[in-house]
Design a binder for these strands. Structure first.
Lengths: 202, 202
DNA sequence: GTCTATATCCAGATAGAC
DNA sequence: GTCTATCTGGATATAGAC
């Protein structure tokens, strides 16, 4: 019966989405170890037993989310790189959209916090570590490339491009953390301050 | 016998130091929840049972360390504020010493990571939360004050001082995290890049 | 003060009924 | 597919011997 099979698949997908969403919120706010499988089940609105029909462990969910987090981030970076605007606009626009996403408190912010937790803690699954090891470099490289192009055009400061790329992303991570401490009253700072690290004044 | 009492006190102090040092390293690398009391005892070189003669729980150790972390940080900020140099030098010197401390990988770096973990995770003891709530503001306020003084003297940019203070510290937190991901090959970025957010070019 | 042994508890994971 | 009940293991904390 292909009808049932199809429906089951759909249910399965929906359940997985529920679980992932609930887990993301919990992992983003507590990290891996402090998040209990019971909480995930509760927040997902399903029983604990059922959870194991979709994921075989907490770690698997975590790793799955880390993978998605980097896919999204790296995708956004590639999109940014391919925009048809001059380099200095890319740098500004990229930071602008990240700050906006942080501010509106949707799952984008949670993905950033998830990455923060995953980066900060030694105690994560080896699979997740491998993903970080491999994917974490991508955003740095892309921003660095954009910065170099801007330097050629004379719109980006002549500091070491690698250093600037590091500061670009550490600032983002720092702001994501800052938001974690002040969840409700987070106001993104004036972007021009940040831009003065990279852009030559006009 | 006052002799024995004195010696016991000394032993007790030393043990406490051992425990705190071991815990700091573990908490800095794994966070509260993933750090097991067994690991702490092992790393301290004492038995698990003995640990409970010095601290009544993991949470107590954690809270104790968070308290110390902020005491140190706030002390350093006050020291910085009272230096007899112009504001823009304070801003630069403060950031310089933090980056140095991060790079040489001593316990200073671990205290920063501890604060990062504590800030990032919802799942920490209420006492620790209260400390963060209360003490976290101090460094921001001091840097803001220094920045305002610099603005009066015309050496600091005229951006919103609160925003700049936020960025000062989020950059530090971000860099501490960045170091956590690349423990061995961390090279502090060119400080002039950071300073261009705050200092008027000369 | 310090250890080993043990009790308690809770989280993770499984089994089996519906 | 979903639940409740249960098993198992590990982590926290205590007890008691030295």
């Amino acid at each position: 019966m292909p009808r049932n099979k199809e429906l089951n698949e759909k249910i399965k997908d929906e359940r997985r989405e529920q679980i992932l969403l609930a887990s993301l919120e919990l992992f983003a706010s507590k990290g891996l170890s402090a998040t209990k499988i019971t909480h995930i089940a509760q927040k997902s609105g399903i029983s604990q037993g059922l959870l194991y029909h979709y994921y075989s462990s907490k770690e698997e969910i975590f790793t799955d989310l880390v993978k998605t987090a980097f896919e999204r981030l790296n995708m956004a970076c590639k999109y940014l790189y391919n925009l048809d605007v001059p380099p200095q606009k890319k740098i500004r626009y990229g930071m602008e959209s990240i700050l906006e996403n942080l501010a509106v408190s949707d799952s984008s912010a949670n993905y950033h916090l998830l990455i923060a937790h995953a980066s900060l803690s030694e105690d994560i699954p080896v699979e997740a570590k491998a993903i970080i090891q491999k994917e974490n470099q991508v955003p740095y490289d892309i921003i660095e490339k954009i910065l170099r192009e801007g330097q050629k055009e004379g719109t980006i400061k002549k500091h070491d491009a690698k250093d600037m790329a590091v500061l670009y992303w550490t600032t983002v991570k720092g702001l994501a953390m800052h938001k974690a401490v002040h969840p409700r009253k987070f106001v993104p700072p004036d972007i021009n301050i940040l831009m003065s690290m990279f852009l030559i004044d006009q």
